[in-house]
Design a protein around this nucleic acid. Structure first.
Lengths: 334, 334
DNA sequence: GCCTATTATGAAAGCGCTTTCATTTATAGC
DNA sequence: GCTATAAATGAAAGCGCTTTCATAATAGGC
């Protein structure tokens, strides 16, 4: 790769001038500009962004940390964030924290050492205190899908409890009385919030929590499979299910449960109604199509990107919405 | 962030020594090492990897360029590549080329200007010549899912034609005679190869190509929806389908077609057999579960990562497999 | 055509690190 | 205890760029 020195020599000007035409940071006479551009072209010159970054302490790139790179949920999130930044001429560096505290920390440090201008964090294991410290170090970052009270101005979240409420309330309104629940790992904030919403709805309808209708899964398909097996084993008298509806903490688990229900010869929604959560891309590939709670993940990603654009790159962004509302996507599984 | 200078001052040694304990590039007396480590810890020092990268011309990061960040296919690919590199202490920088030539070029240049030690490219629009030039510039990169004859030692591909063959041959063996085909965009290499395999199987069974049974879709769900509508409109006499089986260029389109077929009251597999391609994560969430061709995308990603580990980071990797074989995943849709 | 007010350009330091080469310090041999 | 050798350390240049400050070129006014 040609360096700025070679360009300068070829064009017969100094480094500073080259830099000025690259960055338009000061006026350059038209004639010299043309010379420089010709030289750059001839050498196929491209500024070394590492050197630029070192000199300016800016990298024009933002770090994104998610739990996993795979899966429909994160990939949609990442995809949207990238699109938003690409529009603005910024780039993304992506890392996965795997819901593991050490890894999350390590990744954050990596992204910081990479001189990212800002971070977008979807972290689950690192403590609130750690994040607060980070904020005190004056690092620019937004948090997605988690609310830290002291950092509320930089948290972009979904009202998970409302989502859980909507799912269950809908079923109750439909007349269901015995509603099973397969949750994600309860230590994860979103999982427990969703369940809270479920309980809230039950309470409103004067139905008591029945923990035999509860199963804590893993947010994966297998969680749904095992959960359904577990719940139905417990509750089937005369091969009949002990519940008429099932709420799942996310769509993967709903799909897993649905598959097992099919295998058992159950007719959905006739014998059993199922509601998922997330409205992930494949949720309308299931049969019957899954009724679920829409998680506007793309919009949240977009908003996080805008937060960065506004606060770090000083772009003129109107309003940053920090709490998003989920809504029920009524399809065929109820 | 503390710099190496501050650490040096605090520890009472020179920069060089600090550098040596960080990189273990030369022996350091145990006692000074301890001093240095204490100083680093006290200051919360982390080497600035941008500066490191500038000084060493190495970044310990590899660039990945895929067509899209979203979707099950790419996210699995990325996820596996990242996992492989994380194990090796390397990091990934991800970009999306959106199947658009200009964007692909621009992204490649970006990744190069970022000083990536190597690139893993999944590009569709950039020309073979461009890639060859890149190779001549002595840039380390592997190409995924595309074979460029002159660069065959750095291409890792799936035998797409074999996949197409397997799908159709299976149906023919089952006795199907009229097999419709919904393809991806034919300008994309993998789409046309798959179709080639389809034709090859037909030929083997002495069945002539019937272009009224062919539809060129977009590799998206909608392609399947429109494709099915198109094919069935053309062929239904007395509300009966003109074909008994349908091969789709990928699973998304298969899922789309399947949904429409359901809506039309068709019983799958009784009235119609469907085969997809890719064996993407949701393909067993469909109902009935989709028979498809397994695309070992994770393995391909892994192999690409190993190529880099071997050729760029000089790790001791045995064999690099460059062509992968697909296989039929027999499930319930046939 | 000369002086001043602008505007364009260049020289050089600095960003935080690595690495070579020279120097200092420790170790061993006698 | 003194030299010969090996081991540990430091000084300084360099990676490719930006940016400040000083200087050179130009334009304008008379």
């Amino acid at each position: 790769m040609a360096t700025i020195y070679e360009v300068a020599k070829l064009a017969g000007v100094s480094l500073a001038t080259i830099s000025r035409v690259i960055n338009q940071t000061a006026p350059v006479r038209e004639s010299t500009k043309i010379k420089v551009e010709a030289a750059m072209k001839e050498l196929g010159y491209r500024p070394n962004s590492v050197a630029q970054s070192l000199a300016t302490n800016r990298s024009n790139s933002v770090g994104i940390l998610v739990s996993e790179l795979g899966g429909p949920f994160y990939s949609e999130l990442i995809s949207r964030i990238e699109a938003e930044f690409r529009n603005a001429g910024k780039h993304v560096i992506i890392a996965a924290g795997h819901s593991h505290e050490e890894v999350e920390r390590e990744r954050i440090e990596f992204l910081m050492s990479r001189n990212c201008d800002a971070l977008i964090l979807h972290v689950e294991s690192v403590s609130d205190e750690y994040l607060q410290e980070l904020a005190e170090q004056n690092k620019a970052f937004v948090i997605i899908n988690r609310s830290v009270a002291a950092l509320s101005d930089r948290c972009i979240t979904l009202d998970n409890q409302l989502g859980g409420y909507l799912a269950t309330e809908f079923l109750l309104r439909k007349g269901h009385k015995r509603i099973a629940y397969i949750s994600g790992p309860m230590w994860k904030n979103d999982a427990s919030e969703r369940y809270k919403g479920h309980l809230q709805a039950l309470k409103e309808y004067h139905i008591e929590e029945d923990i035999s209708l509860f199963y804590e899964g893993d947010f994966q398909e297998t969680g749904g499979v095992h959960g359904f097996a577990h719940l139905s084993a417990k509750h089937s008298k005369h091969s009949e299910l002990g519940f008429t509806a099932l709420v799942c903490g996310n769509d993967e688990m709903a799909a897993g449960a649905m598959a097992v229900a099919h295998d058992r010869g159950l007719d959905i929604p006739h014998d059993l109604s199922i509601v998922g959560f997330d409205n992930v891309n494949f949720s309308h590939y299931t049969y019957p199509k899954l009724t679920t709670i829409d998680y506007p993940i793309a919009e949240i990603g977009q908003m996080a990107a805008r937060w960065v654009l506004k606060h770090v790159y000083k772009q003129d962004i109107e309003r940053i919405q920090s709490v998003f509302k989920p809504r029920l996507m009524l399809r065929d599984s109820c």
